[in-house]
Amino acid sequence: MIPLLTAQAVAFWVFAVLAVAAALGLVLSRKPVHSALCLAAVMVCLACLYASLDAPFLFVAQIIVYTGAVMMLFVFTMMIIGVDSVDAMVETIKGQRIAATIGAAALLVLLVLAVGHGIITEPAGLDEAVGQAGNVRSLAYLVFGRYVFAFEATAALLITAALAAMVLSHGERLRKKERQKARAARRTREYAEQGVDPAPLPNPGVYARHNSADHPALLPDGSVAEGSVVPTLAARGVVVVDRGRLVAPNIVADETIRAVKDEQHGLLPGENELRDPGPAAAIAAAADSEAASGPAEAGENEEDER
């Protein structure tokens, strides 16, 4: 008999392949974020498989609970403990990887053997069980009827878990919070003793084309204000350190302003050379020399930008 290709079979094969691929991606990707995305993909695939198995309620619940709530929690946690920490893939426990592979494979063989041994006839289908009421309503009858005590127990479990999470993640404050007065006193003292600048840290430089926090601000003398970028970004190496790039917009702006001014004041061509070189020219000269001294850094930065 020619096998009839049903919608269920199509759905199964599509989503099964996707699910396995995503699961492998989960396990094998180096970055936790990628793993989380893969997990979300697996869950969506599974939700679709549920739908193909006449379980519309679970289909919805799977998407809402897992991809919605649980994955959200995972991603939040990931942000707390470092979103882009990359796992070293070197195995530290001797033989662990081999053992894991053998164990998982053996279990798979065993399970497949068991499934193959169990002869499953044509599925009974859920039409009879669901009847006129529909899937959600039938489930509700069961949840609030036969399984009501288990249901209530899970309610208690959820509340307990929420409480437990609050208790666990509640950080105990070790010393008193520093108020404004104390902070002012501390900063002044640090200035007196170590010469630390008592003023607030400068903001990063913000440019219209970029809107980026990885561009440090420039001091009036044209040097880079190191304190204006978040140390985390600096440590990650994504901060722009090429002064030429930093000052380039200034120079452009300066020249434009100058040109407009010249136009308005009717300066004669050639008069420009007679004047003192302006601050923008000095900055540009400094930038040129710096760009020449650190080509490697500049190259890296360009790569970053890409």
Binding site: F12, A16, A19, V20, A23, L24, L26, V27, P32, S35, A36, V42, L49, L53, F74, T77, M78, I81, S85, D87, A88, E91, T92, Q96, R97, A99, A100, T101, G103, A104, A105, L107, L108, L111, V112, V115, I120
Partner: peptide, 24 residues
């Protein structure tokens, strides 16, 4: 379906045994 389930289970198991990141 059951075999797919077994495969996913074993992949998960493998991941648990191999990955060091607690989140993964």
């Amino acid at each position: 379906y059951i075999i797919l389930s077994a495969i996913l289970l074993c992949i998960g198991l493998f991941g648990f045994m191999v990955r060091r990141n607690a989140l993964i």
